[in-house]
Lab assay of single mutants.
Amino acid sequence: SISSRVKSKRIQLGLNQAELAQKVGTTQQSIEQLENGKTKRPRFLPELASALGVSVDWLLN
């Protein structure tokens, strides 16, 4: 799922939720909701993929 991929990649990069949120241009709460499965397809998906160094396709599939 996107939530597990985001969380595992974030941890692999040594980032906390607030640091990832800053790179993406969103809030820590938005990252938390995404990782908890409350958000399925965030509006900041391209920025998120870029910050994590992955493709949008990788996040979604």
Score class of each variant (00 low, 15 high):
Gly14Ala: 06
Arg5Gly: 03
Lys38Tyr: 15
Val24His: 02
Leu60Ala: 08
Ser30Met: 15
Leu34Pro: 02
Gly25Gln: 06
Ala49Tyr: 00
Pro42Ser: 07
Leu15Ile: 10
Glu47Met: 10
Leu15Met: 14
Ile2Ser: 03
Glu35Thr: 02
Lys40Tyr: 15
Ala18Asp: 11
Glu47Tyr: 07
Ala18Thr: 11
Ile11Phe: 08
Ser1Phe: 11
Arg5Tyr: 04
Val54His: 01
Val6Tyr: 03
Leu52Gly: 00
Ser55Asn: 08
Gly37Ser: 06
Glu19Thr: 07
Lys7Cys: 09
Ser55Val: 05
Phe44Lys: 06
Arg43Tyr: 15
Lys40Val: 13
Ala18Asn: 10
Leu13Tyr: 05
Pro46Ala: 14
Thr26Asp: 04
Ser4Gly: 10
Phe44Trp: 14
Trp58Cys: 03
Ser50Leu: 14
Leu13Arg: 06
Gln28Tyr: 09
Glu19Gln: 12
Thr26Tyr: 04
Lys23Leu: 15
Lys7Arg: 14
Phe44Val: 03
Ser8Ala: 14
Ser55Gln: 07
Ala18Ser: 13
Pro46Met: 13
Leu52Asn: 00
Ser1Cys: 12
Ala49Thr: 04
Ala51Leu: 09
Ser55Asp: 11
Leu13Cys: 07
Leu15Trp: 14
Gly37Trp: 04
Ser4Thr: 12
Gln17Trp: 12
Ser3Ala: 15
Gln17Ile: 11
Pro42Trp: 15
Ile2Glu: 03
Glu35Asn: 04
Glu19Asn: 06
Glu32Ala: 13
Arg10Ile: 04
Ser50Gly: 10
Asn16Tyr: 03
Gly25Pro: 08
Gly25Met: 05
Gln33Trp: 14
Pro46Ser: 13
Gly25Val: 03
Ala18Arg: 15
Thr39Tyr: 13
Leu48Glu: 00
Ile11Thr: 09
Lys23Tyr: 08
Val24Leu: 08
Ile11Glu: 11
Arg41Ala: 11
Arg41Leu: 15
Val54Lys: 01
Pro46Gly: 11
Lys9Tyr: 05
Asn61Tyr: 14
Leu34Ile: 12
Leu48Ala: 02
Gln12Ser: 15
Arg43Met: 12
Val56Ile: 14
Leu59Met: 04
Glu35Cys: 03
Ala21Glu: 01
Leu48Tyr: 02
Ile11Cys: 09
Gln22Gly: 09
Arg10Trp: 01
Thr27Trp: 04
Arg5Asn: 06
Asp57Lys: 10
Glu32Val: 12
